[in-house]
């Protein structure tokens, strides 16, 4: 589209199936996970010099979310260079920040495109941007919009006012569910390393090292590790509000213990998968330890944990996890020799 400063790309408000496929791949961490768009100024609809200017990150999903909300409206979108990271994370790192914002306003010659001096930033960008500093240094005024792009139109209609609810970050079931694939993909590297170690150790037995042992003990071990993996990286994150304790490590340990008990309890009813009670018992320590560790790492994806809180939690959780896992492994190996 033509403007006083030349051509400006127009983006469509409708997302295509390619956009959906791309974000699906990102969630599963397939291929590149940083999904970038070039920084700069974009037009949605047919904006004029009076249209609002919305600021976002150059993470493609951030831009997609914003533009799809703006269907049927006219606006400018200024995309900052956040190295392909979403608004909240980039603000935390400072790339969605005061300096980049001021610099980008200059580079896209925003003063020549619009006659007003108002920017609308996503509220979650406030962690990296100092509104009064931007105004002091550039003369542009910042209004923080709602947390969710879905509330944007309501916010604009209300005269750029957000309700307290629009300002709240929640962590509802849906959000926790869409993070599951990412969590599983990220944790799978731990799973792989641990699984290889367990398979190697499975061969050890009172009769020496045997391939038969690897098959028998190894396959049981893989089952238990998979249980820990899903308990810690998928089930506990999804069930978060209904699990005991504020600490994530406790929530994970709880689900891990339940999962191990469910599998092992089949042995009490009759011949099950374990032929050695010590081996079965060792998993009651190891599964909770692994699940606890994985769920503890989920603090990074959650939207309400503080650094001080995480430090406090790790202070008691990490020694407990290491302790339980170590005792578990020792019992697991030694049990075969008794």
């Amino acid at each position: 589209m033509d403007t006083p400063i030349g051509k400006i790309p127009r983006v469509k408000a409708r997302l295509t199936s390619r956009d959906w496929y791309g974000s699906w791949k990102v969630r599963w961490a397939i291929g590149r996970t940083r999904y970038r768009v070039p920084p700069g100024l974009y037009a949605v609809g047919a904006p004029t010099h009076e249209s609002p200017v919305l600021v976002t990150a150059n993470y493609k999903m951030s831009l997609d979310l914003l533009r799809s909300e703006l269907a049927g409206h006219d606006a400018w979108i200024m995309v900052l260079d956040t190295k392909g990271i979403n608004v909240w994370c980039a603000a935390g790192k400072g790339t969605f920040g005061t300096a980049e914002l001021i610099d980008r306003i200059d580079r896209v010659r925003l003063s020549d495109v619009v006659s007003h001096r108002n920017l609308i930033l996503p509220q979650l960008g406030a962690t990296g941007v100092s509104a009064h500093a931007v105004e002091d240094q550039s003369g542009w005024r910042i209004t923080y919009g709602p947390v969710r792009a879905g509330d944007l139109l309501a916010f604009l209609r209300a005269g750029r006012k957000a309700t307290p609810e629009m300002r709240r970050v929640r962590f509802p079931l849906f959000n926790r569910l869409v993070l599951v694939p990412t969590e599983l993909a990220v944790s799978s590297k731990y799973l792989l390393i641990v699984a290889v170690c367990f398979l190697a150790l499975s061969g050890l037995g009172s009769t020496g090292y045997s391939v038969h042992q690897i098959q028998a003990v190894g396959s049981r071990s893989l089952l238990m590790l998979l249980a820990a993996y899903f308990a810690g990286a998928a089930v506990a994150p999804v069930l978060l509000p209904w699990l005991p304790g504020p600490a994530f490590s406790l929530k994970g340990a709880f689900v891990g213990l339940l999962a191990a008990l469910v599998i092992i309890s089949r042995d009490w009813a009759g011949p099950g998968i374990f032929d050695n009670p010590l081996e079965a018992g060792s998993w009651l320590l190891m599964v909770p330890a692994v699940a606890s560790f994985l769920t503890m790492n989920y603090t990074g994806s959650s939207t309400y944990t503080s650094l001080s809180g995480v430090r406090r939690e790790m202070h008691f959780a990490v020694p407990a996890q290491i302790g339980a896992a170590t005792i578990g492994v020792v019992v697991w190996v030694v049990g075969r020799f008794i």
Partner: peptide
């Protein structure tokens, strides 16, 4: 508030850092 960041920071001897490069949703 991310345990992975605290661990990464501890290993590198820095403040908690969120360079878990694989994950755009993880800060």
């Amino acid at each position: 508030g991310c345990a992975t960041a605290v661990i990464t920071g501890a290993i590198r001897g820095t403040e908690p850092t969120c360079d878990c490069a694989a994950d755009p949703d993880c800060c």
